[in-house]
Amino acid sequence: MTPITTTAELAAFCDKLKGQPFVAVDTEFMRETTYWPKLCLIQAATPKDEAVIDPLADGMDLEPFLEILRDESILKVFHAARQDVEIFNNLKAMPRPLFDTQVAGMAAGFGEQIAYDALVRQMLKIELDKSSRFTDWARRPLADSQLSYALADVTHLAKLYPMLRARLEKEGRLVWVTDEMEGLTDPANYDVDPDNAWKRLKPRRHTAKYLAAYKAVAAWRERTAQHRDQPRGRILKDEAIDEVATQLPTDAAALDRLRSVPKGFSGSKFGPDLLEAVREALKNPEAYAPVVEKPKAQSSPAAGAVVELLKVLLKARAEDAGVASKLIATVSDLEMIANDDEAATPALKGWRREAFGEDALRIKRGELALVLDGAKVRVVEVRRGPRKAAAE
């Protein structure tokens, strides 16, 4: 198998993709030791054409393929798309519109975060060869077996997509997937602006000094990781950011006393810059600190018990619908509903409200109850009068 290694070959292949209703896409990349993912291969396929593209080839310009990703008349099909989308977003080519077969599999009843090979096995009755799974995709040349393994990720994907779409349309669940795709293609989810790095973390306090230092140290780590092209955790661990913001060290001795900071950190190439970031933030913490909404206190001592009831309800309703519960609501969603009937959570909007949210509120109002019927939990309606409850 011969990959595409020149811009001219890529342009010719992309000409074939233009006008197609969809294209299946996958990537192979390396990022274990880097901040920025190193794109090593791109695989693309339609029912008629397929190719493996080598981004590492000398002189390769990916712009013809990036234009395809930006073309909103062509649907882009991925499986477990988030990291692929991140890569293409970094290349200024957000792949819209998008269809993620892993999310679709959750909506179609194939379980939580179904793997690609499992979906192929269940829907296409094909067993994938996994022998090249741990390939060093940055090494050249790649063997035919490795290229074939990579290409299989999209050739089968191009067959899966029409089947999954038809199944979801038949069951009236296609909108469930399209709602999820809006979030996947929101550039805010892939923001690498250092000043926003703190948003990916979980500040534990709400004082101005803490938040100012927290934001400053997170931004310093992000800039340093980007500049050195190293993973964030190799620069400074998340827990160290919290400890620095709590203890507010402004000199080397104070920094070295922190438990979560590596020994000798203050004397390293990183220490002085980190300390300077803290000192700058503390010059005017009220102005520098980000605005963080304090979590609402629980509405009642019974909120914890309500969350447990909602977990059982969610499992029951997910089983009734034949859909992965994670697609409907998360534990965080349940906690918000337990504390607030008008919580700003997706679980109380759109199809999720119909599938679960409305019943969650009725459970809180005492209008529904959960009954164990053998090994199955049933949701029953509570009626006033001689009969305590009757099956829905």
Rank of each mutant, 00 (worst) to 15 (best):
A8L: 12
E9D: 14
L10Q: 02
A11E: 05
D15F: 10
K16M: 04
K18D: 05
Q20K: 10
P21M: 08
F22D: 00
V23S: 00
T27P: 04
T27S: 06
M30S: 14
R31M: 07
E32V: 04
K38C: 08
A45M: 00
T46Y: 04
K48F: 08
A51Y: 03
D54A: 02
G59W: 05
M60W: 03
D61T: 13
F65W: 06
L66N: 02
E67Q: 11
R70L: 09
L75D: 01
H79D: 02
A80F: 14
R82F: 11
D84Q: 10
N89A: 15
N90H: 15
K92Q: 13
M94K: 06
P95G: 10
F99I: 06
F99R: 06
V103T: 08
A104R: 10
G109E: 03
F110S: 09
G111P: 02
I114D: 05
A118Q: 03
K125P: 07
I126A: 09
L128V: 03
D136H: 12
A143N: 10
S145T: 13
Q146P: 04
Y149D: 01
L151W: 04
L151V: 03
H156E: 06
L157P: 00
L160S: 02
V175M: 15
T178D: 06
M181Q: 08
G183W: 15
A188C: 08
D191L: 12
V192Q: 14
R200T: 09
A208V: 01
Y214P: 00
E222K: 05
R232L: 07
G233F: 15
A240H: 11
E243M: 08
A245C: 03
L248H: 09
A253S: 14
A253K: 11
L255F: 00
D256P: 04
R257I: 14
D273S: 15
E280M: 15
P295Q: 02
S299N: 14
A302R: 15
V306K: 13
V306A: 15
L309T: 14
A316V: 12
G322F: 00
V323C: 05
A324I: 09
I337C: 01
N339C: 06
D340R: 00
G350E: 12
G357I: 01
R362W: 09
K364M: 05
E367V: 01
L370R: 00
V371Y: 13
A375C: 12
R383I: 13
R384Y: 14
K388T: 11
A389C: 04
